Structure formats: structure tokens, C-alpha cells
Amino acid sequence: MKLVKKLLGILVLTAIVNELAIMPSFAQENAEDTKIDLSKVSCRELLKMPGEDKRLTLVFFHGFISAKKNQMMVDSIALREATNKVTDYCIDNPDATLMSAFEKYRM
């Protein structure tokens, strides 16, 4: 049942990924443009996000990396540890990209 809840959370995340478009650095001249360059999301942006947005962004990036690695099974303890490392990295390197932090600790 826990796995189902986690998977549902990931599915919900994909449905609300458009919410990321409201972050200040993603403000677009054209309101119709909803594209987000994941390679440009900064650690600073993550750290400034409200709690739920931050949590969902971290879940999204974990899912993205898992998909890149073609992982069909994830270790929740390892993901929690990686999240802590990514967060610490971002605190120390706010100008780094969030993708670089995830590539460092999840690849």
C-alpha cells in the first residue's frame, strides 16, 4: 500500500509540474509558454521554494533521474539519503543547477 501511495504521489507530481512555471526565474514574456528547462533550475530556486513545492520538485527530479537510469525499483532509504546530500550541496552551492546536484548524488 505504501508503494501505491508513493507511485500515486509521483503521478500527481507530473500533473502539477506546470506549477513550477510560476517560479520567478521561469517567468516568461509569453504567458502561453509553459516549457521549463530542467537543466537550468538552480539550487537557490529550490531552497527558496515553499515546503510543498520543494518536496514535489525533489520527487520530480528523483523520478527524472530514476527514468534516465531505467530504474524500476527504488530504495526509499537511499533516496532519502540522496535528498539530504542534494539539499546540503545546494545550501553550499546555491548557484549550481539542481540537475548537477542530482547527477552528483544519484548517478
Rank of each mutant, 00 (worst) to 15 (best):
E29L: 10
L11D: 09
M72I: 14
L11K: 10
F102V: 08
M23Q: 10
S42P: 03
K104F: 07
K54Y: 03
K68W: 02
M99P: 01
P24L: 11
N93L: 01
L98R: 01
I91C: 01
E81F: 07
M73Y: 09
L11Y: 15
V12I: 14
S39H: 00
S25T: 09
M1R: 09
R80Q: 04
D95Q: 11
Y89S: 11
Q71D: 12
L11H: 12
V86F: 00
N84L: 11
K6H: 13
M107D: 07
D75Y: 09
V4D: 11
S76C: 07
K54D: 01
T34F: 10
A15S: 13
E45H: 06
E32H: 05
L3E: 06
K85I: 04
Q71V: 04
D95S: 14
P50Y: 00
T97L: 03
T34P: 04
I16L: 13
Q28W: 00
A67V: 12
F64E: 10
D37W: 07
A31Q: 07
H62W: 03
K48F: 12
C90Q: 06
L79N: 09
K68V: 02
K6W: 12
T34Y: 09
M99A: 06
L56V: 14
F64W: 05
N18A: 11
T87V: 15
A67W: 11
I77S: 05
K68P: 00
V41I: 15
D33S: 15
S76T: 15
L13G: 08
L98D: 04
C90D: 05
D53N: 12
V17M: 10
A82F: 05
V59K: 13
C90I: 12
F102M: 03
M72E: 08
T87M: 14
K2Q: 11
D37S: 04
S25C: 07
V41H: 02
R80G: 02
D92F: 12
L38R: 00
T34M: 15
A67S: 09
K2D: 08
L47A: 07
N70P: 00
T87S: 14
G51E: 13
G9T: 11
D37Y: 07
E52W: 06
V4A: 06
K2A: 11
S25G: 08
K85W: 01
A101D: 02
M23W: 03
P94W: 01
R106A: 05
L8R: 12
K54L: 05
I91W: 08
D53W: 01
A31M: 06
